[in-house]
């Protein structure tokens, strides 16, 4: 009885939140000084239809490099400690998956990877970008690990993709120093026509590297967890 009353209280609370959201949502429309500067000058300087992307990749590009590095460090640490934990080379026998899930995952995994690439290539036009696209790619591969336990992916391939994309990111930044205004300046190859797929200078290229790097790092974490888990 008490539990039911409690559930109804929660439901009423959720309903009021929904009604509030629906009735009149007005966000914080006044912009601060810095935000005003970005909104006023961003499209002309960077050529990206998405202001957030312009800030993340160009104005604050160095911070993004730091975030990717932190993610790389955490992936490396997870791999390192799980290696130490599991010294006796026993192979895990995974439970039998149903055939339907196996077939569905075979169809879905390539589609999910294509969708992740779509998200990070269109990062300068739509919400989304490198981190989000990388996470979608990694979840596609997690679906493959769950539904097809027999199939193996080597750690080596993931490490190679990860290193190449990391080096590519830094090289694009250095190219900005050489040919344009500074580190990660995106005027390296011209801005292109505003609002099309090949526009906003180097942003799509940088986002491809960020997306591949994030995707391979998260996949590496999932792979280490899958290989080294002991039966409790």
């Amino acid at each position: 009885m008490v539990k039911n009353a409690f559930i109804f209280l929660i439901l009423i609370g959720v309903a009021m939140i929904l009604v509030n959201l629906f009735a009149g949502f007005t966000g914080n429309v006044d912009l601060g000084q810095i935000a005003n500067h970005y909104v006023a000058n961003g499209p002309a300087e960077v050529g990206s239809a998405n202001i957030v992307t312009a800030v993340v990749v160009t104005y604050r590009g160095f911070d993004t490099l730091g975030e990717v590095t932190i993610l790389f460090l955490s992936a490396a640490i997870v791999g390192f400690f799980l290696k130490i934990e599991n010294t006796d080379n026993t192979e895990r026998n995974l439970k039998y998956t149903s055939e339907i899930l196996n077939t569905a995952s075979q169809v879905l995994v390539p589609i999910m990877i294509l969708f992740g690439v779509y998200v990070f290539i269109n990062g300068h036009l739509s919400p989304g970008g490198g981190f989000q696209g990388g996470a979608i790619i990694a979840s596609g591969l997690v679906l493959m690990f769950i539904a097809q336990p027999k199939k193996e992916i080597g750690h080596k391939l993931i490490n190679i993709i990860e290193s190449i994309s990391g080096v590519g990111f830094v090289l694009m930044g250095l190219a900005g120093v050489l040919f344009a205004g500074g580190f990660l300046d995106n005027n390296v190859i011209g801005l292109g026509k505003f609002g099309t797929l090949f526009s906003a200078g180097a942003i799509p290229i940088i986002y491809i590297f960020v997306g591949l790097k994030v995707g391979s790092e998260l996949t590496g974490i999932a792979l280490s967890l899958k290989e080294n888990q002991n039966e409790a």
Binding site: L94, K95, T97, L101, F115, P127, Q132, S139
Partner: peptide
Amino acid sequence: DVAMVYGLLSFLGVIIVARYFEKG
């Protein structure tokens, strides 16, 4: 696009929790 990603992630979440129930 947001709806698409939402659907993908909810499908994956249900599958993962169900596999956890099976101890798989």
